[in-house]
Each structure stands twice: as structure tokens, then as C-alpha cells.
Design a protein around this nucleic acid. Sequence first.
RNA 1: GGUGGAGUGGCUGAGCGGCCCAAAGCAACAGCCUGCAAAGCUGUAAACCCACGGGUUCAAAUCCCGUCUCCACCUCCA
Length: 468
Amino acid sequence: MSLSLFDSKSQSLRSFEPIVAGQVGIYLCGPTVQGLPHVGHLRSALVYDQLRRWLEAKGLAVTLVRNITDIDDKVLENAKATGEQWWALAYRFEQEFNRVYQVVGIAAPTYEPRATGAIPEMIALIQKLIERGFAYQADDGSANVYFAAGKWANYGELTNQRIDDMADDADAESRGKRAPHDFALWKAHKVGDADSAAWNTPFGLGRPGWHIECSAMATKYLGSKFDIHGGGLDLRFPHHENELAQSGAAGDEFANFWLHNGLVNVAGQKMSKSLGNSIFAADLLALARPAAVRYYLGSAHYRSVLDYHEGVLDEATAALGRIETFLARADRAGAKIAIGNSLLAAVPAAFIAAMDADLAVPTALAVLHDTVRDGNSAIDLANLSDVSAAATSVRAMLAVLGIDLDMAEAPTSGNEQALDQLIQGLISERNAARAAKDFARSDAIRDQLKAAGITLEDAAESTYWSVN
RNA sequence: GGUGGAGUGGCUGAGCGGCCCAAAGCAACAGCCUGCAAAGCUGUAAACCCACGGGUUCAAAUCCCGUCUCCACCUCCA
């Protein structure tokens, strides 16, 4: 295993070795389903989809668990605003998340647990923490239970911070906390909150704090020690720090590697509700086809900030078009795609090196484009074996990256056949005009098709058409 | 106040001690091809010294020190 990954906890590139040979357990903090998925959600999910595909290409059996946070303050708040049941709202958005994930080719996780499905495990974990002296029920007698950050000597180890240096939580005392940096494990039910949003527990009626769910679910499905924990950079603190503290205090070794993906800026600015500059997944998908959206999201390294602005999807579409044109030309040239049962064996060494270097997808894309150029040259030289090799290689790289070009093969539907027949008629007419040197007529036909969004390409042996 | 990240061509964006007189894509220009295009290939220009100023080294975009600017996180956040 020559894969290196940047581990946020040690802040260094570490060689990745699975805890159990041949298997990888990954836990991802999935979305809080309180609203529509935006470009940031898509990017995060995509990063780990690429990681998973790469691990699988390398022959590892990946167990990917990505949770759904279906209860929290925002879910309850937003449901009050829309007049829905909180669980109906959460489920509605959960489905929308899964819809857009599916559209851009993010494979479904091995399992997708909901926070509300792990309440008994959370209660058990909280009780364990109370027994061990790392958690306490609020001094005001409410059902609030807090984690005593100061009691856990390693608190701050994930983000390299010391409690004394952290900014204070202003209203800590009013909620029965003993220290400002203690955080909620269990939140007491409040008057006005839906009855369905409360569970009866040894601490009283209430609902889970934000962090406890991930500790409970990660260990429930992956064990007390697992390979990789991932999520957005914004989750590093407090969410992941608190998860680590809870699980560590409960005696779990927890994640071997911590991965954090960079966020998405919009025209250089942070995306936020208050700025009103959010780009939703549906916005992207309305502007470009899924493969282009996926290409764009992978155009910057996963730990870098990815900027979204006007034109980025057009660039991605153009880059993709180049790859597509090559594959179409190779196909016409008679290239044989021969990917065996190992994608890894069909992919260039430079591509493997890039992916192994902390998942350097932009570098991997450069290798892909180099291969396209070499393949195009081979077509011009009529070197069929090189063409086949390049096309095979390109197909394999696309497969590893999960980019599904969904290229038009021979027309299949009735509509496509009808269109093809019409255009073939015009192409014949144009070629007849060209043969007769009636270029006014031939250009008029080409312009007519162009106005309809159809581009003609005169290859040596025939004329091909494609819809822009 | 604390913690972390970034500043590379017209744009996006890799590289993070010698293979860098800096990848790849987009955009531009020229040549080949074409009746003309498109597509493709080739080439060119584009980063004056890779934010700025010092330093270490035989060698620095890459390491160190300082400065400037920007961004993120510090209990809502992918």
C-alpha cells in the first residue's frame, strides 16, 4: 500500500496502512438535513467517493458509513417555520441529498445511519462517560448532560489547541455548565419543542447533542478503532474535536486517520446564508451536465479551497468535451478498449502515483489529458495499437474517477433515430453540394444545423454530427 | 488572543529542495489539415526573480526568519 494521506490530527502526510489487511472502514460526517444540498455538500461527498473508488481500485474492501443528522436545533427550527413535522422535513431533505449525490455519481455508502436510529447507543455512551467521570448532569437539575472538557487531558489534540486559549462560550452558566468549554452530550427537552423530538432516558427527557451521534454510530458500525474519519474542514472544531474527546474518554481508540476536505468559496467569498451567495446543487446541475459538475468539483485538490464563479462549469464542460472527442475519434478509428478486471492495471503509472500522493486528482487529470493528446496524435499517425492503448487508459482513468461521460452511442430512442435520419439527409445533400463545389449551399446547410445546436465534423472518411 | 491554510501566467490550478528556463485545462495567436470551417496536431506568446525583504544550501517556487495581504476555525456549518 503506497498510498499517503494527509492526517489532520498529526498534520502530516502518513503512509496509509489498513488496520485489518485488505479492508478499510471509513466514517463520514454526513449532512444535517435541515435544508437543500449546496455545492459544499456535494464537494465533500465527492472527495470521499473518489477516495473510496481509489481504495477499491487498489483492491481493498471498503466499508463506508456516512450518517444523516436528522435531528438538531436547525431541523426543529426550520420545521416550525414551514409548519412541517421535523421528521418529515428531515426526510424530505435527506431524499434530495441522495438524489443529487446519485446524479453526480456519488455511490451510495455501505450504510447510512440516521442519528435518531442510534439513541440507545448514545445513551449507553453517555452513561459510560458519566461513570468514568468525564461527563455530568447539569447542576441546574435539568436533563442536560455535559462533557467535562477540562477533565480530558487530551482535549484539543485534534486541532492543536489549548482550552485556555479558546474563546469563551458566553452563555455557558445559564445552561448549567460547569466550565465554558464543556459541551452538550444530551439536551433537555424544552417547552414548545415537539414531543416527538424527545426520548426518555436515565438523565430525563431530551434529545441528543450534536457530537455524540457520530461517536456512537462510528463505533457501532466500524468498531472502537477504525481507519478513516472524514468530513468538511469546518467540522474539525468543535465537532470532530469533541467526537474524539468523547470516544477517547470512553476508551475507544477511534479513527486512525482524520481527513478534512476544503470548503467552497463563491467568487472568493465564504458561502453563507447571510451573504445570500449560496450555490445549491440544483443550481449547478441546471447549468451543466453531471459529468461536468463532477469534473469541476475535482479540479482543485481536495484540501484546497475550491472557488466557484461564473464560467467554471463551462471550462469543465470544454475539458470534458476534449476527452469525449478523443474517445469518439478513437472509436471511429477502430480502437479496441480492453480493460481487464483490474482498473489499476489499465491506468498509467503517473496516474497511480498522483492518486497515491494524497489523492492528487488535479495531477491525475493532467495525466488523463496527456494521454488524450498522445492518443489523438496516434490517431493522426494511424497507429491503431497506440490509439487502443490510449483509449483504454483514458476509459480506465475515467472509471476510477467516477466520471461517467454518458456518451451518445448509436442512436437508440425513436427520437434520436428520427433526428439522425433527418441530419444524415442534410449531410448527404451538403456533401453533394461540396462535390459540385456549390459551397454557398453546403455552408448554408452547415449554418442551418449550427443554428439548431448541431456541429458537423468532416473527418477523412465521413461526416459526423453532435449536439452541442 | 489562540489554531490552521493560502498568495504561482489573461483565468482556473498543480508542483512543495536538483527531473521547474514551473504540469494540465480554459482563453489567445500562428502553422499544418480543410473549398472555408469544425475537430485534431504542432508551435508561439503568456509566471520578468512563483506576494515582498532577508537568510540557509553546491542547488529554493519548494527550507528558515521577518513583513504585507487574504481566508478558515475557536461550540449552527460540507
